[in-house]
Design a protein around this nucleic acid. Sequence first.
DNA 1: AGCACGCCGACT
DNA 2: GTCGGCGTGCTC
Length: 722
Amino acid sequence: MTAPIDKLLDYAIPASLSSFVHIGTRVKVPLGRRMVWGFVLGVSTEEREGLKPIAEVPEDSPFFPPHLAAFYQRAAAYYHHPPGEVLRTALPAGITGKVQRVGVVHEKKYHALDAADQPKGARQQEILSWLRERKEAFGSEIGAVFPSPTPVLKRLVELGLVGEEEVERRRDPFFDLPVDADLRPSATEDQGQALAALQQALAAEEFAGFLLHGVTGSGKTEVYLKVIAAALEAGRQALVLVPEIAQTPQLVARFRARFKSGEHSIAVLHSGLSEGERYDAWRAIARGEVHIVIGARSAVFAPLDRLGVIVVDEEHEASYKQAEGFRYNARDLALMRGQREKAVVILGSATPSLVSYHRSREGFLQYLRLHHRVLGRPLPEVELVDLAGRSMEGSLSQEMLDALESNLQVGDQSLLLLNRRGFSPYLLCRECGATFHCPNCAITLTYYQSRRLMRCNYCDYAVAPPTVCPECGGGQIEPEGAGTERLEEELTASFPEARIARMDRDTMTRKGAHQKLVSDMEQGRIDILVGTQMVAKGLDFPGVTLVGVVGADAILNLPDFRSAERAFSLLTQVAGRAGRGERPGRVLIQTYAPTHHALQHASRHDYDGFYLEEIEYRRALEYPPFGHLVNLVISGIEGEKVAEAAERFCDSLQACAGEEVEVLGPAPCPLFRLRGRTRYQILLKSVTRAPLHRLLSRLPALRSALPRTLKLTLDVDPLDML
DNA sequence: AGCACGCCGACT
DNA sequence: GTCGGCGTGCTC
């Protein structure tokens, strides 16, 4: 059922429906007093008393091939999440709700019949001879050549010269987009070696997991393209996961360029699709018409039947983890799926997650390295700018200003990273020190000068900034610290002649905004691009020779055991944006902690050095990859009750836990209040997974002791614990 | 989730 | 004497 019920329910198959009910079919069934949508995960011929019958099987079934039923259930079991909710996440939206919001769209398709007759009308002759040439065509295709052809076609059908049929039409937003020219560079030596290993594994038709570790600009995409071509050649299919499609238009464009010929169909799944487009893409995949699926994390559930290759690009990205509801990690599920379907799984990254790198050293993943940038381009030189003891007027040091100035002089582009949205992270009363907090969340309100408001970045609460301090009545309320909006303003003041643009969640909301900014950068219409971590990802601008990181410390200082890893990875990624063209790049990182190991190793492009140092911290604390974590969050409106219940719940967990599982907490979450709810967390830690899963399987029983007004959320393998 | 049941206070 | 608040339990 698409309801949060922990178990699967059994229904009788009425004789009249028996030939339509298979694994993967969508069915309407009675549940209590209502009718709900469900999906068939298993079929049995055994007779059983007392089952309610399936009420209806719609025409658009089946939705997924039989072997995926087991995969979905495995995912549900691993994350201890109700199978129905898993299906709701996995399948396209709009088919499981009360109202059927999407449906099949039909279109007329015409074909010339075998008849020598010529019609009398000129228009009829014109269209018929065109159609005889083409053999068959959709109504819309004919309409594109001849204006309003429908009445003419109707007459031709009546005359028996043309046949028509209703066919299902796939809504495809990429259908009309122009395709770039395909460049097929020959493989470098590194790429050749990686490809040989991958193709051998593909030919073996067994599961094989790879970590493709290639510095930025080393040509990982070309490796993906070539392996996928080999898989298609062998009659198998490919699944490509990317962190966020909207941010990787260049990658999608290269796939479309390479596989544009009619024989291979690509489906692109992403959050920007309408429900109808998503539904159509899903159905086309389920019918076996699609050979390559490119998509964000939920594409890991796509109903491909003969998978040969799964690519997880930028595997270290946190966006592979769904942060609410069914909290799965698409990278981990991709490995699970690859094992079940005997596919080759490639995790690609310039900065692999510590966990994946560790798994490659342990032998679970085969390690492939691309050492060099293509065309022998050098990695940029990185300098750390120590801010300690300086007084700066704005956010930028003299070194940074000088570097920007000289880059402007020679006409090169610069990229500045500041991982903070808005104008300033908070407003401060100069007289009494008051700051302004979100009433729903334990966080200061970010000040947005352009819109004259203070906004919570977590719950979107917004309010006009006060002109007098509500605490002391003083009138000196000023922004403290800087976000991208303020940085953009500072730059405009320092470099009035420069063309400056900003890229963050606030400027990228309009449809096509991202595309426009990318093309402006590519065409050299921007001198300085300011942005949040968005600018660090997936973009390839050959004109950028200077990258500046304005506040490295904001990334380092999050209260999370992974903050060093995240900082190393983000800094390395953004540094890799410099010098991808003909001229070498340069990177400046401003920090108050220049000796931090993440910064030191990032500045030397030394992944292994970082790994060897960071892995010892993890080992000492039994954090991943040495221990496995589950984060339990108990939340509710009334803070007192939550604290009390969390305490009691923790005790009962402790009582069940046994020796191997450590139960830590309860502790207030770093975001103690979020969207009006008070939150406590309990962390479970274990060196092996089995005892952890045993404890979690007792959770439904333990949960019933919690008051129903409180919510318990469960996060297996959490990525952040805020 | 969504629906029914059941137990308490406030009203015609 | 009944209407409706929400805490609790169940759904093949």
